[in-house]
Design a binder for these strands. Structure first.
Lengths: 169, 169
DNA sequence: TGTAGATTGACAGTATACTTACAATATCGG
DNA sequence: CCGATATTGTAAGTATACTGTCAATCTACA
């Protein structure tokens, strides 16, 4: 015999993992923006700055792989960072299509100065949990994100994305 | 003595809770959209349909509280659902500012038909984890979202948002 | 009663996050 | 060497997700 479909209640929404992930992302962004309000930098812009700092002379496509970000979205992010004079774009000599990304002095200073605020934000997100639970959650989430990597439209390609990035400039 | 600042590496990004939440949200939306592609419905539109189904005659402001959604964003969502003829907006007799929301026949049918796909999507999101770990993650995440509720810009107001919603008309 | 203050939906503006398409350029197979 | 194919950055289009502001309307208090 076929089973009856469950009645549709708000619980179908509130207990769904997808809803909880969306909600937690909202909260995380909200906390980040609040802690970093003095710097007028969004989480995504921050991640881009860190990646460019770590890999000077990276191009937009590789940057998108390194922070698991859609290339199109990244175009706008880069534009904003450039207009705020935090990064520079220089044409590559080897490939006329490519524009290489570098932090400006101002960008490097911003990154250095914002770190404590970012750290505070990350702590605040998990603050309500008991320390042991924080660790458990992070471990499980790290696992899940890693194992689900290919399910996202823009999988993370941390290392191998940079294989061909050698002599930049 | 002051401690040296940690060197800035991509690990500062990859291990940050905020990054993991963003990444997991990307993955969750991607899986949802894939499983529900036959219905052309986004996670947010689905949540709105469920809420309107559960609370017929709800208005936009209360709906935003019930699914923890910014009112401005919701305006566009409602517009799209209306243009797809999944919901109807009727002016309230009691308050000329308010427009009450109802599912259409088509919207109710859509909601009924999409449930199995939504269910599959939710299962897929956690699939890579061991069953016990899925439960642990959901428990911790539920706790964290609840305890952080006020930290978000649009806190969830599930029940009390509907206190004054009685005789809709 | 009558007005100050709150609420409601709408709109404009910013910032992700994705899709598809496109021109310029590179690369590879024959 | 040359044409098919791939890559790069850009752009247009859709959909969240927020910030403000605004006019219309409602409520409550003096």
């Amino acid at each position: 015999m076929p089973s009856k479909p469950a009645p549709i209640t708000m619980d179908a929404v509130y207990t769904a993992p997808g809803y909880l992930f969306r909600r937690m992302q909202q909260i995380a962004v909200s906390i980040f923006v609040e802690e970093c309000s003095a710097f007028d930098l969004t989480p995504v812009q921050y991640a881009a700055l860190v990646a460019i700092h770590t890999h000077p002379g990276i191009d937009a496509t590789r940057l998108s792989a390194v922070i698991a970000f859609d290339r199109s979205t990244l175009g706008n992010v880069i534009e904003r960072l450039e207009s705020k004079a935090l990064i520079e774009r220089k044409p590559s000599r080897e490939d006329k299509r490519v524009k290489l990304l570098y932090l400006t002095k101002s960008g490097a200073a911003m990154l250095r100065d914002i770190m404590p605020s970012v750290e505070r934000a990350q702590v605040r997100m998990l603050q309500p949990l008991k320390p042991a639970d924080r660790k458990t959650l992070l471990t499980l989430l790290t696992q899940l994100v890693d194992l689900n990597n290919e399910a996202s439209r823009v999988p993370l390609r941390a290392e191998d994305a940079l294989e061909h990035l050698g002599k930049a400039g």
